[in-house]
């Protein structure tokens, strides 16, 4: 019975960890908001059933018989779950880092890329355009005069990009489709000669400036030409989500 109670304890701890993330609003560090409620509800249900099973076990109303297997096989199978659980409970959520971004550098979506209208969740007030709003606008048919005349003020991290010139970088955000595993950079091209001299890849910067069309009327290629680049810290909510 003691062993089964221990197993139930581990399951309760896992459900409790997910519920803690849910209540603290920290699930968004790991998953798309569309799964948040579902995750909270399912873990609560599981918690209830596991506790009910534990109570039944203590009251000797439940007998869990499992096929015997080598003790070391049980230990080997259990170590990973204890490891994951310990790290989850002990450490605060870890931000996705530059190494993560670099490993995904060839999968980015950038404005002008494939002519499809892209849209991402953004918390900015209406009319205040961030990277998400500019990507959405530039990925559809636009009036060039209107685009190049607007002042641009956007915050993102510096990313070398896959298809850009040495004097260009991508001002990026990470977008999550499902969970952090699929985080992919999305961004706007920024024209800045010798940017590697004073900007570190992965650092967060606020860029002020305006767009210029480096393509032609048939195949526009809008790149942001900055008037100033200001280094900043990582914002609290640094991820975008695709709905």
């Amino acid at each position: 019975m003691r062993r089964n109670l221990l197993k139930l304890g581990v399951l309760v701890a896992i459900n409790g960890y997910c519920l803690k993330l849910f209540l603290a609003g920290e699930l968004l560090n790991y998953i798309n908001p569309r799964y948040v409620t579902f995750t909270g509800v399912m873990n609560l249900l599981s918690l209830i059933v596991c506790i009910a099973a534990a109570i039944a076990l203590v009251g000797r109303k439940l007998t869990v018989i499992e096929p015997s297997r080598h003790w070391w096989a049980g230990v080997l199978l259990t170590v990973p779950v204890v490891l994951v659980l310990s790290v989850g409970w002990i450490l605060p959520p870890q931000p996705l880092t530059r190494s993560n971004v670099a490993s995904k550098s060839l999968a980015e979506l950038v404005a002008n890329s494939n002519g499809q209208r892209l849209s991402f969740a953004s918390e900015r007030p209406e009319g205040d355009k961030g990277i998400a709003e500019w990507i959405s606008e530039l990925s559809g048919p636009v009036d060039e005069a209107s685009v190049v005349s607007q002042p641009v003020d956007v915050l993102g991290f510096v990313h070398a990009g896959a298809k850009y010139q040495p004097n260009e970088f991508v001002l990026s955000r990470l977008v999550i489709y499902c969970c952090a595993v699929d985080a992919t950079p999305v961004g706007l091209g920024v024209h800045e000669a010798d940017w590697r001299g004073h900007l570190k890849e992965g650092s967060w910067v606020q860029v002020h400036g305006s767009f210029r069309n480096f393509g032609d009327a048939m195949r526009p290629n809008y790149i942001l030409v900055p008037s100033s680049i200001e280094p900043l810290g990582q914002p609290g909510s640094y991820l975008y989500y695709k709905f």
């Binding site: 399912m42 880092t97 993560n100």
Partner: peptide, 26 residues
């Protein structure tokens, strides 16, 4: 603590937890 953990390890931890947290309700 995150400041003391190497970036690769931070990424590994985040990806592991995200897979568990995302997969568990299903």
């Amino acid at each position: 603590l995150p400041n003391l953990i190497p970036e690769q390890l931070q990424t590994f931890i985040t990806l592991t937890l995200s897979l568990v947290v995302e997969g568990l309700p299903f």
